[in-house]
Design a protein around this nucleic acid. Structure first.
Lengths: 160, 160
DNA sequence: ATTAAATGCGACCAAAAAAGTCGTATTTAT
DNA sequence: ATAAATACGACTTTTTTGGTCGCATTTAAT
């Protein structure tokens, strides 16, 4: 019952991109992976998926990078989640066919669970990247606290 | 991003118990596990957890079994899920402490994700066992289709 | 009393999913 | 030509989940 790490990485990256570039400048996978301690190969693949699906735009080559493909209020959480992890499925038995879970013919919760899934999907659909940005005020106080940066600088032995 | 099998088993069992007993008669783990093809040891442990948390009542001994401890409209999904899987946590970094995810001091989505989790928890809190029961009308048409029962009878080589 | 059928637990093993790594190709500004 | 970036797939490791085994306790029926 967790979002996958990849989805977290996607959201971290997109939030950062929204703050940094404002749709204009490019951000590289490498810089993001450094800043947020995300394995670069994984982050790259995540960003590539988001690009293929049309949430990001990419530019190849030595001056390349990524940028948001749409305004922040037009990117909702459901698209992000489904871009990375595939179609939302809260239970095993809602694939369209009558029921293919282990309890097949006897499953008694298929229809109700479908309803719950629809509700959750709707919730994710109503939350946009913009909502995330407006809700992260509290984080700034410590994310950009200089003491923390110094601590990390020491920790990893390099400038951030 | 799935409910665990154990949570599914819990819901299947509780829905069945609500239909069968109407709070009076006892249902055994064994009969449920047979009817829904759930490994009996697992189902037992699930029902035991639900009992400890107070959602079911149990009676030990040879005539024992389980029954719902509360009316169906007073059992919500959040209690069921948290009884089985522990506190709801959609992301790694909302444990109360500032942030203990891999991106620790740099995580920029902690607060927004907490908000999403709260919204989802509220959704689960508003859905009761009664809602599940009223939404499963569609299932009856095939769950109780005699042809299916015959098919299963042949499949497992015993009366159901 | 003995037995059988039920709940109650904990330790352990196996399978599946997720996370992460490695290698290589392609693109493009310098 | 080179360096730094995206693009992509195969593979390995780790973690989580699902499932199994064994044993103890309770209690109705004989």
């Amino acid at each position: 019952m967790r979002f996958s790490k990849k989805v977290e990485y996607a959201l971290i990256a997109m939030v950062e991109m929204a703050q940094q570039s404002g749709y204009s400048e490019l951000v590289t996978a490498r810089s993001l992976s450094k800043e947020y301690r995300i394995p670069p190969e994984i982050l790259s693949k995540v960003l590539q998926k988001l690009t293929r699906i049309g949430l990001l735009q990419s530019v190849q080559g030595i001056k390349g990078g990524y940028t948001l493909a749409k305004p922040v209020d037009q990117i909702n959480l459901l698209e992000v989640v489904e871009s990375i992890d595939g179609p939302l499925r809260l239970v095993a038995c809602n694939t369209g066919r009558p029921c293919d879970c282990e309890q097949f013919l006897f499953c008694n919760i298929q229809t109700p669970m479908q309803y719950i899934q629809d509700e959750f999907a709707q919730l994710l659909r109503t939350i946009t990247l913009k909502d995330l940005l407006t809700r992260m005020k509290g984080d700034f106080t410590w994310v950009y606290d200089q003491k923390n940066f110094n601590k990390i600088d020491k920790l990893v032995g390099q400038s951030v």
